[in-house]
Simulated scan of single mutants.
Amino acid sequence: MSSVLRICFRPGLAVLAGLLLMLTTTSRVQAQDAPAPAETTATAEAPAPAAEEAPAPAAPPTAEEVLGKLTVGIDTIWVLVCSMLVFFMNLGFGCVESGFCRAKNCVNILSKNFVVFAVCSIGFWLVGWDLMFGTGDGEFIGKSGSFMVQAKDNSPLQATKGYEGEYSSIAWATVPLWCKFFFQLCFAGTAATIVSGAVAERIKYGAFIAFCFVMAVAIYPVTGHWIWGFGYLAKEWNFWDFAGSTVVHSVGGWAALTGAIILGPRIGKFSKDGRINAIPGHNMTAAFIGCLVLWFGWFGFNP
């Protein structure tokens, strides 16, 4: 009996001993891994940063400053409106010229009046403006400035800070520089468009485009500098121009006369015996509309 009990209790004692050993080992590991209690140290709290002082409110603009900005804004709008009227005259030229020409040349006439402003824009932007309004009192051309209208100009601020720039001949206008440029660009395009009607139906398309570029780069800017750029005529002869009568209309008219003389009359205009043959236009309605558009747009020449 005693031998049987020994056999039965030996495995139980072994299992019990193993469990006790596992519990003892686990408690030791947990005791080693437990974090030490943090030491509390009395630290003095840092003083809170002082609040930043609020900036003083800006002084309200004076009545003179408000009036100056308002004047510049109104002048700018007015010059832009006049520029658009002059630009609108391209429609008038196109209608008049195409209406008084034969139907077979209508597309050519309209195309020339459309592209003339684009070509003049490139030429006047590249060189023309700086030749016309660059500083050069009493000179043949303007000698200051740079290409592509890149010179300094502070026109809107000159009333309070004085003029600082390279275009002193037109510094009297307090509107922004690019507003002045657009106004004069429309004049340059008009001077070139005047020639289109004088050489209608007898000039090659490419030749007319080349002429427009030369007009915007050299002819109109150089003549304009003599008068509006305070160049030779303005200084030596005290020459004044009203509403572009010389700088635009006269220059365009003389260029048109020169082109007509060089090209000669239209084919079929004169018979071999010298008799004059009528070449009637194909659309009097378009010509009438063009005349009214030119009449209306001309008021933009007098801002």
Rank of each mutant, 00 (worst) to 15 (best):
M1W: 14
M1R: 15
S2L: 11
V4D: 14
C8V: 09
R10M: 09
R10K: 09
P11L: 11
L13H: 10
L21A: 15
Q32Y: 09
D33Q: 08
E39G: 06
A42V: 13
T43K: 12
A46V: 11
P49N: 03
E52I: 07
P60I: 05
P60K: 12
A63T: 14
G68K: 07
L70G: 11
G73S: 09
T76G: 07
S83T: 15
F88A: 12
S98Q: 10
R102M: 06
A103Q: 03
L110T: 07
K112F: 07
K112C: 06
N113F: 02
A118T: 12
V119A: 07
V119R: 03
I122T: 10
L126K: 01
L126A: 14
G128Q: 02
G134T: 03
G136Y: 02
F140W: 08
F140V: 02
I141D: 06
G142V: 02
G145D: 08
G145W: 01
S146V: 03
S146M: 07
S146H: 08
F147Q: 01
M148Y: 11
Q150E: 14
A151M: 10
A151W: 06
P156M: 05
P156W: 01
L157K: 12
Q158I: 00
G162I: 05
G162P: 08
Y167W: 13
S169K: 00
A171H: 00
A173W: 05
A173N: 15
T174E: 14
V175I: 12
V175R: 02
L177F: 15
W178P: 00
C179I: 12
F181C: 09
F181N: 04
F183W: 10
F187P: 03
F187A: 04
G189C: 13
G189L: 13
T190R: 05
A191T: 14
A191M: 12
T193A: 15
G197Y: 05
G197T: 12
A198W: 09
E201W: 05
K204H: 11
K204F: 08
Y205N: 11
G206D: 14
A207R: 09
F208S: 06
A210V: 13
C212D: 13
I219P: 04
I219N: 05
P221F: 07
P221T: 13
G231L: 00
Y232S: 02
L233T: 04
L233H: 06
A234D: 10
K235A: 14
E236P: 04
W240C: 10
A243L: 08
G244V: 04
V247S: 01
V251C: 12
G252P: 03
G252L: 04
G252H: 06
A256E: 10
L257T: 12
G259R: 03
I261D: 06
I261F: 12
R266T: 00
R266Q: 05
I267C: 10
K269L: 15
R275W: 03
I276R: 13
A278Y: 02
I279D: 03
G281S: 07
G281N: 04
H282N: 08
A286V: 04
A287I: 00
I289P: 01
G290N: 02
C291H: 02
W295P: 00
F296E: 11
W298D: 01
F299Y: 10
G300Y: 03
G300Q: 04
